[in-house]
């Protein structure tokens, strides 16, 4: 199984430890992973701002970088959803179709494809799981609070395999944190208020860490936590699953 690592641009630049954890975790599970060096960004920042027509360059580049793999795996629900829903290239329809079908968010790849049942990591802390919306409602990583359907959670299942972790129940289990891409600056007031409210839900449960599948949401929450001089830190789920010490 040949797997390409797709690392969102802001993770590459600001959170390399998340990409490293994701790489090491896949390698530890015996996967042949490589990281195409020419990759930049999925094009979502433009598309979500209404400039989808400017994303052609990103689309072409994405296809070029990710040809020839069985799976493409990324530590992000949001970027994966964007590829699955909006990757376009009219001259390479079959390739695009294959890429869309084989691009996976990390936790769904671990649960659905690798069917991971054991992990060696340990994380002896109180942790709150932030359900990032694009992974949650877009990729259906967990049962959504709005729907009348059976409970399940792919990230939750993986976290339950981590030793000594103490996962808390939140009051609003899948409320948006307010990041929303350019929303976070265009609607600064509401974005920050949403972030503060999300943090309060975790604070009420005395968590030490907030984790999630999307570093973009966590970056937004971290920005607020640091401004508040909070003792709570954020950790991407890849870091916890990989067993990197806090």
């Amino acid at each position: 199984m040949k797997v390409a690592l797709f690392i969102p641009c802001y993770i590459d630049q600001f959170y390399p430890q998340v990409a490293i954890a994701c790489l090491e975790l896949l390698e530890r599970l015996g996967i042949d992973v490589s990281y195409p060096l020419g990759q930049t960004c999925c094009g979502q920042p433009m598309a979500n701002s209404g400039f989808e027509h400017l994303a052609d360059g990103c689309n072409t580049l994405f296809v070029k970088n990710f040809i020839g793999f069985d799976y493409i795996v990324a530590p992000s629900g949001s970027c994966v959803l964007h590829i699955k829903e909006h990757l376009k290239n009219d001259s390479q329809l079959d390739l695009v179709k294959h890429i869309k079908a084989t691009t996976y968010e990390l936790t769904s790849f671990l649960v659905d494809i690798l069917k991971v049942e054991h992990l060696t990591s340990s994380f002896p802390y109180r942790v709150g799981m932030h359900q990032s919306c694009h992974g949650q409602r877009g990729l259906k990583l967990s049962q959504m609070s709005e729907l009348n359907a059976p409970e399940f959670s792919k990230p939750g299942k993986l976290l339950s395999l981590v030793k000594d972790i103490e996962l808390v129940e939140l009051d609003r289990k899948d409320e948006c944190c307010g990041f929303g891409g350019t929303f976070c600056v265009a609607e600064e007031a509401v974005s920050v208020k949403m972030g503060k409210d999300r943090i309060n839900d975790h604070t009420k449960q005395d968590v030490e860490y907030i984790t999630g599948v999307d570093m973009s949401c966590l970056m937004h929450l971290e920005g607020i936590l640091n401004r508040q001089n909070s003792s709570i830190s954020v950790k991407h789920i890849a870091e916890i699953l990989n067993g990197v010490k806090a």
Binding site: P16, E188, M219, I224
Partner: peptide, 21 residues
Amino acid sequence: NAWYLQRDMPKVPKSSFSEWY
């Protein structure tokens, strides 16, 4: 900078992931 009004910027790592890789 609308980000910075009520949020800190992310801490900056020494190198990007692609450099590390």
